[in-house]
Design a protein around this nucleic acid. Structure first.
Length: 438
RNA sequence: GGAGAGAUGGCAGAGUGGUCGAUUGCAUCGGUCUUGAAAACCGACGUACUGAGAGGUACCGGGGGUUCGAAUCCCUCUCUCUCCGCCA
């Protein structure tokens, strides 16, 4: 969530930012936060004064009792009872106001950085880079037509998966349900190859490999913002009140919940492979065909914790890392800078990577790389001690997929079809142990 | 699943109703000494809210209660550890 300091000290900037994100009722929300904060502050001042007085009395009574002046002590006791009533009242009000303020702050999204383009929809996203065509500053998805033309008719990946016996969707339905594919033979080996390839590449870029739990408690869900807003999107084990993670971001970022880091340890660079679980309630149609949208899938996530001064640089490095992966996999890709309206609730700036699928005639989102500024850290209470000032301040958190497997597999299968079979890119061959799927 | 023990500051570990936000040791930081380092000695050393500041307030796993006053007593929840059982 946004810090109160930011909301109160730079109110106009916050309102403008929220409007850029097309958040309804921006000004009202901000004003309400300020009003609640003011009330909380006033209540606390009164409460503190009342408690201070009670404490004085208590100390006095203690002294009197020690000296055996029982009567005097009884007198003081009588006086203090009124104070107690008042402080109970104030305490209740304080808690109420604080809870309300917190709930309210959770409903206000992060504000975008200045270089995030204006816009409401996905068509307004700016294409900033591609390995297919030079991009100009004004390219947006809406007018960008550089789709690669690939020879020969193309089968979509779900047909290829059947043809080469790589993925059995029906079997997945039998043992779990739709959205839980069963990978078979070279299909399964390709999964394992990609996981190892992505982890090795991350390590080469300086990330520490983490193998976290794939179920988390509610505190962790709150820490990274999946709760309370997106509760319905996570699988929940009710008996134990644990959640299946939708991304490794959740456990890996929560390592730093309630932690004060040393500036010299930043940036922290972690990566993790996990299975990811998403209920995807409400999805349907062509979006969910084949591997396009699954309930369970494999993903390698990169996570950084950094200082405000260096986080932009970190973000750039993460983008370079992900781009490097797509280059090595020889896939046609483009990089989008998301417009204000298309950004997620929590991000300050986000780049999407998309890979073109000739058979589906569309771009598939394979990675989002975001900087959350202090938004996530504020909720996590993830801070660091500034080496110069010795003061604690909020970190910046960043994360990105590097990469999620299903759509990469879809693109690899569809774009590498040959009459002889499906060609495996060179960089991946040491990992698969085969050059062709045939 | 059964039985028991426990949860205190970065770590270890005192503290069972009255200046306890908390003794002490280790670690860390600064200083003295030293050519340098070590050792020794001196000093500093939790977080947050609030206030211009002095200061005030809260926090000893979470929540609630008793009391003028609670780390300390009571209730409750959560978690951890040990033993037994089961088991990859």
């Amino acid at each position: 969530m946004l810090t109160l300091k930011l909301i109160t000290e730079e109110t106009e900037r916050v309102v403008a930012g929220l409007e850029k994100k097309h958040f309804e009722g921006a000004r009202e929300a901000v004003e309400r936060a300020i009003a609640l904060d003011k009330m909380r502050r006033e209540t606390q001042t009164r409460l503190d004064a009342t408690l201070a007085e009670s404490k004085k009395y208590a100390a006095q009574i203690g002294q009197l009792m020690k000296q055996g002046q029982r009567e005097e002590a009884e007198k003081a006791k009588a006086e203090v009872s009124q104070l107690k009533e008042l402080s109970n009242e104030l305490q209740a009000k304080m808690k109420e106001t604080e809870d309300e303020l917190n709930r309210h702050l959770c409903t206000i999204p992060n504000i975008p950085y200045d270089n995030v383009p204006e816009g409401r929809h996905a068509e307004d996203n700016r294409v900033v880079k591609s390995n297919l065509k030079e991009c100009t500053d004004t390219d947006t998805v809406g007018n960008w037509d550089a789709n690669p033309v690939v020879e020969s008719a193309r089968l979509p990946h779900w047909e290829l998966a059947k043809k080469y016996n790589l993925i059995d969707f029906d079997l997945g339905v039998k043992i779990s349900g739709a959205g839980f594919p069963v990978y078979v033979g070279k299909g399964a080996r390709l999964q394992r190859a990609l996981i190892n390839f992505f982890l090795d590449e991350a390590r080469k870029s300086g990330y520490t490999e983490i193998m976290p739990p794939t179920v988390v408690n509610a505190d962790s869900g709150y820490g990274t913002g999946q709760l309370p807003d997106k509760e319905g999107q996570m699988y929940h084990c009710e008996v134990d009140d644990l959640y299946l993670i939708p991304t490794a971001e959740v456990p890996v970022t929560n390592i730093y919940r309630d932690v004060i880091l040393d500036e010299k340890d930043l940036p922290i660079k972690n990566c993790a492979y996990t299975q990811c679980f998403r209920r995807e309630a409400g999805s349907y149609g062509k979006d969910v065909r084949g591997l396009n949208r699954l309930h369970e899938f494999s993903k390698i996530e990169i996570v950084r914790i950094d200082t405000p001064e260096h986080s932009q640089e970190s973000h750039k490095e993460m983008l370079q890392h992900v781009e490097g992966l797509l280059k090595k996999l020889e896939l046609p890709y483009r990089i989008l800078l998301l417009c204000g309206g298309d950004q997620s609730f929590t991000s300050a700036i986000c780049y999407d990577f998309e890979v073109y699928s000739e058979a589906q005639k569309r771009w598939l989102e394979v990675s989002s790389v975001s900087n959350f500024d202090t938004y996530q850290a504020n909720r996590l209470k993830c801070r660091y001690r500034n080496a110069e000032t010795k003061k604690t301040q909020l970190c910046h958190t960043l994360n990105g997929s590097a990469l999620a497997l299903p759509r990469i597999v879809a693109a690899l299968l569809e774009n590498n079809q040959t009459p002889e079979g499906i060609r495996i890119p060179k960089a991946l061959q040491p990992y698969t142990g085969f050059e062709m799927i045939d």
